[in-house]
Design a protein around this nucleic acid. Structure first.
Lengths: 366, 366
DNA sequence: TTGAAAGCGCTAACAC
DNA sequence: GTGTTAGCGCTTTCAA
């Protein structure tokens, strides 16, 4: 091992990143001007086949690759888009990001993925970075953070699309929460459940949380059931014990709910776990329905009945909307889309333990 | 809806992305030269407090934000790093990417995430894009693709680090597969298992696959057990039925294995599903051990005994190695790290159904 | 302490 | 068909 002397100069190669050939090198080698090279690269202008061939050869010989920074600088667009996500480790988000990356890439965009872990400070810094990069647009996913940020972005006239969340004043694409929740409630009622509780997740973006909760109450009402405030739980990862306690007291009463509708799959699975810890079987004692349709739910040991969000379409449409926004500029009116939800019935739902009422099953146009 | 005339000029805002203030604007407003502004921004040089304040005010007043493309161009470095991953929807990868993003961002790098779905063509295009962006370095995760690509990158002298996979000639960081597998085997043998099968996944990067398989055989030998080639399965998502058949015949014989060691959690869980489809209980009839330590395994309904990879350390160290490579240039010798594995015993393992031998439990220095 | 000027690698308008 | 030229927004000498 050579010991480095105190004042020895740094080793040769150090960070002097290998010099890459530029368009000038190509021009010199092929004996044309750099605009001709540029024209060949971008397939514009017109030139003789011979010239084109010579340029192509030079490019290959040198291993030339255009420098995006230079192009960005002069074109004033980067074909970069930022994707801001709370938690990539969440399966739903990961799948969404994956499809966003695909859709973006098919349209010639590169994605910069930013994981904020829900910290507003981190989020602010990430967005700042994205703006320095002059991203052409930003996709906000399951945005749990400071909503002021959105307003600020809009004020800066940066193209923004909300994917799987919602803001009145910004382009948004999300699942039809209302219909999704209604599907779930109808399914449970169809099985004979009349006492249905709702469990939401503190980390769901507030507007979506509110929407799903409202949809839940409305759906109950439509089924002739009365929403009970004490049956609305919020699960908070940071206050696990508290949730457990509330759930415990909820299910141990005589008039305990026979079904739980969770605002997402993650929570649904958590609830299954908790219930079984407490000695309640799912679905024998309590039915559980989720929302999202993440892959884990398919496992036969989980077999979660759930409302599926069309992740691929959400991503696809989100990117399309973002691109349109980029094209049309900040003054075009904002657009919102709701995509249809779909119920998948598996084995976490069953009729309630004992029939608590004898009213005839209601026919509904599904 | 206004109908657009044939030769009408395009609408005003259209894609003429809002003009952002430049360093010149700041210089003009604060009455200094742009080099002074630059110095204030980068906190270099020396200037009077008054000047600094004036420049700061101008920056704030204009909402100025430096343009990364311009900086990249002149500095010949981008602080961008590419992360190439096969499948983000895979929980292990998603977590790794998440931690890579964090570690990178803490060091001032931005990550470009590329999902290849294992298609060599897509992978090649993505890497090409990364190189056009002049990323400072690339992290290859669970790299299943064309290994020629790595050689090519190395030949181009691009800083590369393999995270959770291995290449002799490139910087690599991975878990200690050998020790991990040994832990699992010892655990099973300790429970009394003597007939242990191995199931790998066709999508695991070949070298890792090989390493784990070899480690498995070696561990068996060390325990005085004989590896049986017919007990080495490969699960292939695209040939699900075939795997099922092989598994079926494997477990239906008289001398069937009483335990399965899978090369990753995903496969382990798949095997649990298949076994239970076939009417075998886990762990009553067959024990199953995984490898990775993904979150799903923690669910009480899954409760997978598994070898945990230290994802956070892998990511952290991977980024650090990449940065060092960026600093030291392509000629520094390559470095490899193995991180310790940890066994987590949950409820997918138990003693074999009937004691098949009475040999005394062996004491081992763990 | 500050400024002038060159130039990073490319595109695009225009000339020839 | 092909070349010339003027930047894009910044950093970085080097002078003043």
């Amino acid at each position: 091992m050579a010991v480095r002397q105190e004042n020895e100069p740094a080793p040769a190669q150090s960070r002097a990143a290998v010099r890459r050939p530029t368009i000038n090198d190509v021009a010199a080698l092929s004996g044309v001007s750099k605009s001709t090279v540029s024209n060949v690269l971008r397939d514009t202008g017109s030139m003789s086949e011979a010239t084109r061939a010579r340029v192509r050869d030079a490019i290959k010989a040198l291993g030339y690759r255009p420098n995006a920074a230079a192009r960005n600088l002069v074109q004033q667009r980067t074909r970069l888009i930022g994707v801001v996500v709370g938690d990539l480790a969440n399966a739903f988000n990961a799948e969404l990001v994956k499809h966003l990356e695909l859709a973006a890439s098919e349209r010639g965009y590169i994605t910069l993925v930013c994981n904020t872990d829900g910290f507003p400070e981190r989020e602010r810094r990430r967005i700042e970075t994205l703006l320095e990069q002059r991203v052409d647009g930003i996709a906000l996913l399951q945005f749990t953070g400071d909503r002021a940020v959105i307003g600020q972005l809009l004020a800066e006239r940066v193209p923004v699309v909300m994917v799987s969340c919602w803001a009145e004043y910004a382009d948004s694409v999300a699942v039809d929460d209302q219909e999704g929740v209604a599907l779930a409630v109808r399914h449970l009622v169809g099985l004979g459940h009349e006492r249905i509780a709702h469990v939401t997740d503190a980390r769901i973006e507030p507007i979506t949380r509110r929407t799903r909760l409202d949809a839940f109450e409305r759906a109950l009402l439509l089924e002739g059931l009365k929403p009970r405030p004490e049956w609305m739980l919020t699960w908070d990862e940071d206050a696990d014990a508290e949730t457990r306690e509330r759930l415990q007291s909820l299910v141990s009463g005589e008039e305990a709910p026979t079904a739980l509708l969770a605002a997402n799959d993650f929570t649904a699975i958590k609830m299954m776990e908790m219930l079984e810890d407490m000695g309640r079987q799912v679905p024998r004692d309590v039915s559980v329905v989720g929302f999202d349709g993440i892959a884990v739910g398919e496992l036969s040991r989980i077999a979660l009945t759930t409302v599926v969000q069309p992740r691929e379409s959400l991503a696809e449409l989100g990117i399309r909307m973002l691109e349109e926004r980029i094209e049309s500029g900040p003054d075009a009116p904002s657009r919102q889309h709701r995509l249809p939800a779909r119920l998948i019935v598996r084995h976490s739902t069953a009729p309630p333990p004992k029939a608590t009422s004898r009213r005839a099953p209601r026919k509904r146009s599904q």
